[in-house]
C-alpha cells in the first residue's frame, strides 16, 4: 500500500511564516441570501425588517428567523438613512451592521462585566440590514444609554456602525450620535473628529415623522463624506 502523503508545501494559508491577520475581502453583491436575516434589523420587535427576500428563492429559509423578544426598556427609535457613493448615487447592495448598549448603557457582551447595570432579556444590541434599491436602510432599536470612555470619561449615547458593500474591500467603521444630547459636547471620540466633520456622525430626528425617527445618511466619498474610524 502506498503511504499517504501531502503534496509539497507551498506559500499558502497554512504556512507558519505567513501567520497573521486574515486579510479582509469585499462582501460582494451576492450576500443577501446568507447574511442579513429576516428580523435582523429589528432589535426590539418581531418584524422581518433587514433582509431582501425578493433577491433569493422563497423556499430558502436559512435566514428566516425572527427571535422572540422579552420586555425591553427604553425609548424605541427608528434609525434610517441612505447610503450613497462619490457621485451621490444610492448604493443598492450595501449591508449595515450596528452594535450598541441597551438603554441603561450596558453591552450584552461577556466583556462588559458591569453586573450592577441591568441587561434586558432579549435585547442583544446587534443588528444587520441590507440597503434597498434606493440605498435605504432602516433599523428599529432603542436609544442607547451613555457608556464609559477612556479613563474616567463618559461617552455620549452612540451606536457603532459597520458598512459593507461591493467595492468596499474592508469594513468601514463609523458611529451614530444623536442630535440634542448634551453629552455630545464632551464625548471623547467626537472630540477627536475635526469640528467641521462632526456633523456627519450626528443623526437628526426627522421633523416630518411622528417622532423617534432618526436620520443618518452614509456618504462613502465626496462632499459630506462620513467620518470613518481606524479602530
Amino acid at each position: 500500500m502506498t503511504e499517504q502523503v501531502n503534496p509539497a508545501p507551498r506559500l499558502d494559508n497554512q504556512d507558519p511564516g505567513l501567520f497573521g491577520q486574515t486579510p479582509s475581502q469585499t462582501v460582494g453583491p451576492f450576500f443577501h441570501y446568507s447574511l442579513p436575516w429576516k428580523g435582523g434589523a429589528d432589535l426590539v420587535g418581531q418584524s422581518d425588517m433587514g433582509a431582501r427576500p425578493e433577491l433569493f428563492p422563497e423556499d430558502h429559509d436559512v435566514l428566516n428567523l425572527s427571535p422572540p423578544r422579552g420586555a425591553i426598556r427604553g425609548e424605541t427609535i427608528i434609525l434610517e438613512g441612505v447610503v450613497c457613493d462619490a457621485d451621490g448615487k444610492p448604493v443598492p447592495d450595501a449591508m449595515i451592521e450596528i452594535w450598541q448598549a441597551n438603554a441603561a448603557g450596558r453591552y450584552a457582551s461577556p466583556d462588559d462585566d458591569r453586573t450592577d447595570i441591568p441587561l434586558d432579556e432579549g435585547f442583544i444590541g446587534f443588528g444587520r440590514a441590507a440597503t434597498s434599491e434606493e440605498g435605504f436602510y432602516r433599523f428599529r432599536t432603542v436609544l442607547p444609554g451613555a457608556v464609559p470612555g477612556p479613563g474616567d470619561s463618559l461617552q455620549a449615547p452612540h451606536i457603532a456602525v459597520g458598512v459593507f458593500a461591493r467595492g468596499v474591500l474592508k469594513r468601514l467603521a463609523t458611529r451614530v450620535y444623536f442630535a440634542g444630547q448634551d453629552a455630545n459636547a464632551t464625548d471623547p471620540i467626537l472630540a477627536l473628529v475635526p469640528a467641521e466633520r462632526r456633523h456627519t456622525l450626528i443623526a437628526r430626528e426627522a421633523p416630518d415623522k411622528d417622532g423617534g425617527v432618526w436620520r443618518f445618511d452614509i456618504v462613502l466619498q465626496g462632499e459630506g463624506e462620513t467620518v470613518f474610524f481606524d479602530i
Partner: peptide, 16 residues
Amino acid sequence: PRSPRQPLVRIPQTLT
C-alpha cells in the same frame, strides 16, 4: 467611487 478619500480618524478602542 465607494472608498473614502478623507483619512480615517484614529480612535482608541473603547468599551464599544
